[in-house]
């Protein structure tokens, strides 16, 4: 049985696992964005926090993914279900690019423009939402893009703790020493990552050209 035949024969399962994979990576990235972007904004306002926050996110990123899943297993509620645990671990991984890019994006806004805004009487919030975030949006979306692709990749390992996703095929194929089965997981996962990269890349370029400095 070749790869295509395997895919067609198991199309329902391929579809289910792909959707599961998208859910894992999607929810994790969303969660990471909800925490990471505000954190990135916060450390532009409270510079003393920038070192510990970025350092912490950096350390999380250096933990091998399988080990991170393992560390979180004993956690109450989280450890009860594989998918919860996987989403938390993936979100922790995705934090660094989101925090870092939000921080770098806001810091890269031309200080003369920010000061002009402040001198015109914009409040801190108006400055943030009307000037800094729009001008940083290209860099922030680049962070979302990195985080998404990263999550889709690392989510294949989530199958090791029973969280499902396309990693199921990969681990099953490894156990069966069957390359077709491994590919049935690996190829859709790669395609997912590539499409996410492409779509977010387009958005990033659009925002970049819209908000480029004069």
């Amino acid at each position: 049985m070749n790869f295509l035949q395997f895919m067609i024969a198991n199309r329902q399962q391929v579809l289910d696992l792909t959707l599961e994979h998208i859910t894992l990576a999607g929810v994790a990235t969303l969660l990471a964005a909800l925490v990471g972007i505000p954190l990135g904004i916060l450390i532009t306002r409270v510079p003393q926090l920038s070192k510990p926050v970025l350092g912490g996110a950096n350390i999380i990123q250096t933990i091998p993914s399988l080990a991170l899943f393992g560390f979180l297993l004993p956690a109450p509620w989280i450890g009860d279900r594989g998918s919860r645990l996987a989403i938390l671990a993936l979100a922790l991984y995705a934090l660094l690019p989101l925090i870092r890019n939000t921080y770098a994006g806001i810091r890269s806004v031309d200080p003369a423009v920010v000061e002009a805004g402040r001198a015109m009487g914009l409040t801190d919030l108006q400055l943030l939402f009307q000037v800094e975030l729009p001008l940083a949006s290209g860099v922030i979306v680049a962070g979302v893009r990195i985080a998404t692709v990263l999550s889709i990749g690392v989510a294949t390992i989530a199958a090791a703790i029973g969280a499902g996703g396309l990693g199921e095929f990969i681990f099953r194929g490894l156990a069966m020493v069957n390359n077709q089965v491994i590919l049935a997981g690996a190829i859709p996962a790669a395609l997912l990552a590539l499409s996410a990269d492409f779509i977010l890349g387009m958005l990033e370029r659009r925002l970049g050209s819209l908000h480029r400095k004069s």
Partner: peptide
Amino acid sequence: DPIRLRRSIGYVIQDGGLFPH
């Protein structure tokens, strides 16, 4: 109030300091 003060003062800088977006 710094916000009120600044809104009552027009401010012009080199190259306009315009918002590029």
